[in-house]
């Protein structure tokens, strides 16, 4: 399994890439819910949480680590291990992988001139700031005027100005600061998804 080698950064451990059989995956789903739909929903939720944990901990490829965690859990279930809460168990496995990763990282710390040349250069994301800006503007244009006003004023200004803006918004909307913060965050997440989607379509057209 070839992965980018990021010098001085977290990278995949040597003990990764556990194979997952269809039988083990089926048993995992059986543990997650009485029917496939329920189990599928729970599976996605667990995977999303795992990706978040690896992201929070600063891993370079959170998705791969999350899949690796699920594969290990599924293998344990396939081996007949009784697990009461798959979600909690998976988080435990993830922490074990993180510890392995930390050990690997510690072991591999060495002066740069002694480090081997990377076999695969880290792939930098497509950087197109103007395109991203255009996409963001387009996505903002799709919001209702109230929502657009909220997001633009909530995130406008630096330090002191920002605090004043947010205070004015709470007074204007008649909501508490934490409610306003969550409302703005939800709009921000929606906007980011929209902008990512727009960028993908844009890059697709360009290639």
């Amino acid at each position: 399994m070839e992965r980018p080698l990021l010098l001085g950064r977290v990278h995949a451990g040597r003990g990764m890439a556990v194979e997952l059989t269809q039988e083990a995956f089926d048993k995992l789903l059986d543990c997650l819910g009485p029917d496939r739909d329920t189990a599928g929903g729970r599976y996605l939720e667990i995977r999303r949480n795992l990706v978040r944990v690896f992201e929070w901990r600063g891993c370079s490829t959170p998705d791969e680590y999350a899949d690796e965690t699920i594969n290990r859990c599924a293998r344990k279930i396939g081996e007949g291990e009784e697990i009461r809460d798959v979600g909690t168990y998976c988080i435990g496995v993830a922490r074990m992988i993180l510890r392995e990763m930390g050990r690997d990282r510690f072991r591999q710390v060495r002066p740069l001139d002694e480090a081997p040349e990377p076999r695969v250069m880290p792939r930098e994301p497509e950087s197109d700031p103007e395109g991203r800006l255009e996409c963001l503007r387009r996505c903002l244009g799709q919001l209702s005027p109230e929502t657009r006003n909220l997001i633009l004023h909530y995130y406008h200004g630096d330090k002191g100005n920002k605090i004043r803006n947010r205070k004015s918004l709470t007074e204007l909307l008649g909501v508490g600061a934490s409610t306003l913060r969550m409302r703005a965050l939800r709009v921000r997440e929606r906007l980011q998804l929209c902008a990512e989607d727009c960028m993908q379509r844009r890059n697709g057209r360009a290639t």
Binding site: P125, S127, P129, R132, L133, L136, R137, L140, I151, L152, H153, Y155, H156, G157, R188, L191, Q192, A195, E196
Partner: peptide, 14 residues
């Protein structure tokens, strides 16, 4: 990158 774009847009629009 999204935060950078958002920062630019809020600065110019607001």
């Amino acid at each position: 990158e999204f935060a950078q774009a958002l920062s630019r847009v809020t600065a110019e629009v607001a």
